[in-house]
């Protein structure tokens, strides 16, 4: 009886462990086998860095990385600015057609990606616009704005807005208040939004695939082409290496951000001494 009971008590943590295994095991196995001599077989043959050498000397990789960074960098900056403005207006003001506007705003999150991608392609063809970096940026801004709005709005709900009134009572005009009081208060939320929008844009495949041209393949499209190639030839080693590098970078990014935010919040020990001296 007690065995049954303790089994019952351990079953939920056990299931949790299995779910974590389900989430992380595929990624770890991919990483381990990126060092395997046999590129097409998921059984250990011997250690080798061959796939990394092949990958890093692959010109297309560097070109794709450049395209990805250019598109995502521009799109995230634009959508963070536009999304923050939108969140501010939604939070502070009442205006005609607000409900309809909100409904429209979150539309890109609900429309199936394949439909959004194809309709953008149809639209760009309709306008006679050549597909490439520009069309990718336009699309990426459109589908990251709702995400930015959601995150910034969440931050706005936790801000003490009387500080804004205090600034105005003390004689600051609206723009000064915005710059010196409101924006610094919103800053963590804006950073968090940019931080979520970055992987959202960088990793997007479906929409990007439809709005770019074969000559302008960002990293996800390159990965897709490599996977299609590997489906035929079975040469998976290079994708394992690419996946490993991308996953390590992706998992390090949040870690670095957490550390940076920590440092910002708690300040480095002893830093306040320097500050006091200067004042």
């Amino acid at each position: 009886m007690s065995v049954v009971r303790s089994l019952g008590r351990a079953s939920l943590p056990g299931l949790l462990g299995l779910v974590y295994l389900f989430i992380y095991a595929p990624l770890f196995i991919l990483m381990i086998f990126s060092f395997n001599t046999a590129g097409n077989l998921a059984w250990w043959q011997g250690f080798s860095l061959e796939w990394y050498e092949k990958l890093l000397s692959y010109d297309q990789l560097w070109k794709s990385l450049r395209i990805s960074l250019m598109v995502t960098g521009t799109a995230v900056i634009l959508s963070t600015v536009i999304g923050t403005l939108t969140a501010y207006a939604l939070y502070r003001w009442r205006f005609w057609g607000k409900r309809l506007f909100e409904g429209m705003l979150y539309l890109p999150m609900y429309i199936p990606e394949v439909v959004l991608g194809i309709s953008l392609l149809v639209f760009f063809i309709f306008l006679g616009m050549p597909r490439g970096i520009l069309t990718m940026i336009l699309a990426h801004v459109a589908f990251t704005i709702p995400l930015v709005v959601l995150v910034v709005l969440a931050r706005m709900q936790r801000i003490d807005w009387t500080l804004e009134e205090a600034a105005m009572d003390l004689g600051a005009d609206e723009l000064t208040t915005l710059r010196r009081v409101t924006l610094p208060l919103l800053f963590p939320g804006i950073m968090a939004a940019a931080f979520l929008a970055f992987p959202w844009s960088f990793n997007d495949f479906v929409i990007t695939y439809f709005v770019t041209s074969p000559g302008n393949a960002p990293l996800p499209v390159l990965t897709y082409n490599l996977i299609l190639g590997a489906k035929r030839s079975g040469a998976m080693g290079m994708i394992n290496a690419l996946g490993t590098l991308m996953t390590v970078a992706a998992l390090l990014l949040p870690l670095v951000a957490v550390l940076l935010l920590r440092v910002r919040r708690f300040s480095l020990p002893g830093l306040h001494l320097l500050r006091k001296k200067r004042a």
């Binding site: 595929p26 990624l27 196995i29 991919l30 992987p199 990793n203 997007d204 495949f205 990293l219 996800p220 990965t223 897709y224 996977i227 994708i239 690419l242 996946g243 991308m246 996953t247 992706a250 998992l251 990014l253 949040p254």
Partner: peptide, 11 residues
């Protein structure tokens, strides 16, 4: 969420 959707599918 931060990792690539395609890499996860490939894994």
């Amino acid at each position: 969420f931060w990792t690539s959707y395609l890499v996860r599918i490939f894994a």
